[in-house]
């Protein structure tokens, strides 16, 4: 698997680290316990195309939003995770 970073070009997988499904969104402060539980613990665990967050640690250090098929590892799109990646890690 290689990821075509929008900033650095095609790079080997070992340069990237993985956060996971890009869909779960951090609940607003004061959200219910159910919403927080859902966000922290439950996953769709999709078999098929999934949008996910990857970090280009060995390159530009940008958070990326990669759409990848979990059944085949085929990548259909890579875009910068503007704001989203940062928000995900609490920055």
């Amino acid at each position: 698997m290689r990821i075509v970073c929008p900033f650095c070009g095609e790079r080997e997988l070992g340069e990237f680290t993985y956060l996971g499904d890009a869909k779960p969104a951090r609940p607003a402060a004061g959200a219910s316990e159910d919403d927080v539980f859902d966000y922290v613990y439950l996953r769709d665990n999709i078999a098929g195309a999934m949008s996910e967050h990857w970090y280009h640690a060995g390159g530009c250090r940008a958070w990326l939003k990669v759409t990848r098929n979990t059944l085949t590892h085929e990548i259909s799109s890579v875009e910068p995770a503007a704001g989203v990646g940062a928000a995900k890690v609490g920055a």
Binding site: E12, L13, G14, T17, N45, R68
Partner: peptide
């Protein structure tokens, strides 16, 4: 390998590691 997968195969970077 560290990423979600249902394909029963992995990648080279982990093999190297």
């Amino acid at each position: 390998d560290g990423y979600n997968s249902y394909a029963q195969r992995g990648n080279m970077s982990v093999m190297e590691d």
